Computed example of a mutant assay.
Amino acid sequence: MVKIKTSEEIELMRESALVVSKTLGMLASEIKPGVNALYLDKLAEDYIREQGAEPGFLGMYDFPNTLNMSPNAQVVHGIPNKEPLKEGDILSVDCGALKNGYYGDHAYTFPIGEIDPETEKLLRVTKESLYIGIREFKIGNRVGDVGYAIQNYCEGHGYGVVRELVGHGLGKKLHEAPEMPNYGKRGRGKKFLEGMVVAIEPMINGGTRRIKQLKDGWTILTADGKPSAHFEHNVAIVNGKPELLSTFQYIYEALGVDSDEENEFRQSKLVL
């Protein structure tokens, strides 16, 4: 059952989402060749706690860390380790935080130094598909409209859209109804209502859509070993339209990137 949020609850969720946004922004300055994921994971745990929040993933379903960190051909749910990042890698960082009883949960895929043009295109198209999907999250539409928009765009570029892993509702639980697949048919699925809050998160593979799982019970990889990208935002329906609760602007500020990609999804100015 979908749990509709009041305007007060949405503002509390914005606080939770911004803890994650700020954490990803802090990490953006630290993610570079030679650094290992365990080091980044400890930085994130400490930072989240300093913000008066708790790591949302640590211990959930027995997950052992604060961050899901998935390099290269890993799609999601990678467990941080001591292997140093290398020039040309990519790293998906998925982070969650619990504050005021509500979860924030979003992700960004970082290039490590200079990456090859094909992988750079995969990251660009996946992030573009995120906003294409968000645009469809509005009154009058349904779950299938978001999934169709993402699938159509990414498959149009020859990429594989993962089926087994999907976005989700968000609130007092990390995973609430409805499920938000990155594929679908227009006009199908749960109807969107004022006050719904979801995590939209394209997981897009550079080759086949098929995946496999490591024996650790967590790490998901592409079946063909090609890279995968993952971008995620938390979005509410406010005044019938999609309103971003999360932001990548802290990442862009750390990296010196100028972007207006989020402007159309903000009904009030974000103060960094």
Rank of each mutant, 00 (worst) to 15 (best):
P227W: 09
V238W: 03
F248M: 12
G225V: 02
A223D: 11
F231V: 07
E243V: 14
A223E: 08
I220F: 07
E243D: 00
L221S: 05
L221V: 08
I220N: 03
S246A: 14
V238I: 13
P242A: 02
K241T: 00
T247F: 12
E243C: 04
L244E: 05
P227D: 14
S228F: 05
H233T: 03
Q249E: 15
F231T: 13
T222Q: 06
D224F: 09
V235H: 05
A229C: 11
L244N: 05
K241R: 12
F231D: 03
P227R: 07
T222C: 11
A223I: 09
D224S: 13
D224H: 11
S228V: 01
S246W: 00
D224L: 10
T222R: 12
P227I: 03
L244F: 03
T247D: 14
E232I: 04
E243G: 11
F248K: 14
A229N: 08
L244I: 02
P227N: 08
V235E: 04
H233Q: 13
L221C: 02
P242L: 11
A229L: 09
K241G: 00
N239V: 08
L244V: 05
A229T: 12
G225I: 11
V235F: 01
L245E: 02
T222H: 13
A236D: 03
L245R: 03
A236E: 02
I220E: 02
A223Q: 12
V238Y: 00
L245Y: 01
L221R: 01
Y250F: 12
V235Y: 01
A229Q: 12
G240Q: 10
S246V: 09
G225P: 03
L221Y: 09
P227F: 04
N239M: 06
N234W: 00
A223K: 11
G240N: 04
K241I: 01
G225E: 04
E243P: 10
L244C: 08
G240I: 02
T247H: 14
G225Q: 02
H230V: 14
F248I: 11
F231P: 13
D224T: 09
E243Q: 15
V235Q: 03
G240V: 00
L221K: 14
D224K: 06
A229P: 09
T222L: 15
H230M: 15
S246D: 06
T247V: 12
H233N: 06
A223S: 04
H230C: 14
A229S: 15
E243S: 07
F231I: 11
P242M: 07
K241A: 03
V238K: 13
G240F: 09
V238N: 02
H233A: 13
D224E: 07
H230N: 13
Q249S: 15
I220Y: 06
V235M: 01
I237V: 04
T247K: 09
Q249Y: 09
Q249G: 01
E232S: 08
F231E: 11
S228K: 06
L244Q: 02
I237P: 04
A236Y: 07
Q249K: 15
